[in-house]
Nucleic acid binder design. Structure first.
Lengths: 124, 124
DNA sequence: AAGGGTAGTTACCAAAAAGTACCTACTTTC
DNA sequence: GAAAGTAGGTACTTTTTGGTAACTACCCTT
């Protein structure tokens, strides 16, 4: 049986600022992308999730999932069958978080369009 | 004269996703905190900014400011007087971004309160 | 005339993060 | 009977970051 001992080691936010803890969590590479995949695809098994994020290693995926689970942003549903079946999905907190991240996404898209129209002006 | 040659080296988002570029920018340590300080205090000079973010080194501050300037999230106002006077502040883009980040901040605060009330339930 | 403040830059080093490869234990499929 | 798939864990290496200290050039203050 896997012992789930991989240490997530969030530095525990010495400043005590709530935003600091949240940023520290989201700032890790892949983290937001993992959340976005879980949001658009619904709950996924470990392997499916990994296949949906090309380039992501098992090690890092496990770390990220542990941190997100600990913060109750995602849930972990474990069926100790053979082969084992573990499903991850967004909790209510996770969905709430995604609505905020979605706003960032909208901004990113808007800026991208703006930048393109600056790069190639319509005056031809 | 400082030659402003410090390479910001954003990995240029190989995936081409707009959100990826934005996250790559915001994800760096201190970046969001710098933006928050500029938002709450208004435009600040380099030294003032540094003093407002304890623990942040000149090197990293310069790197972050260059990246944010390049993305037009902050502006850089340079008066080549002696001593030199350089002021940084949020652009319209920056202010737009901060409204989105503020929502994350609200979520972080709410969760923090929730977690405390779970840790010490009112049933005494 | 020595020290401090201005806004950085550079080189060097230490720490943290991420990637790689290989391992479990069991079943199903080829 | 060997390979592949399940969900990770472990050890090792490499890459990326961030911090430190010293430096620029010029002025004002003590």
């Amino acid at each position: 049986m896997p012992n789930r001992s991989l240490k997530p080691k969030l530095p525990k936010s010495p400043s005590g600022c709530p935003m600091d803890s949240l940023l520290r969590l989201l700032m890790g590479q892949w983290t937001c992308y993992i959340l976005w995949v879980l949001c658009t695809n619904g709950p996924l098994r470990f392997g499916e999730l990994k296949r949906n994020v090309p380039g992501l290693s098992s090690k890092v995926l496990t770390e990220r999932l542990r941190m997100l689970e600990e913060s109750r942003i995602i849930f972990r549903d474990h069926h100790p069958s053979i082969p084992p079946q573990v499903t991850y999905g967004l909790t209510e907190r996770g969905k709430e978080l995604l609505t905020a991240l979605d706003e960032l996404f909208e901004i990113a898209k808007r800026w991208c369009v703006e930048d393109e129209s600056v790069a190639s002006p319509e005056s031809l």
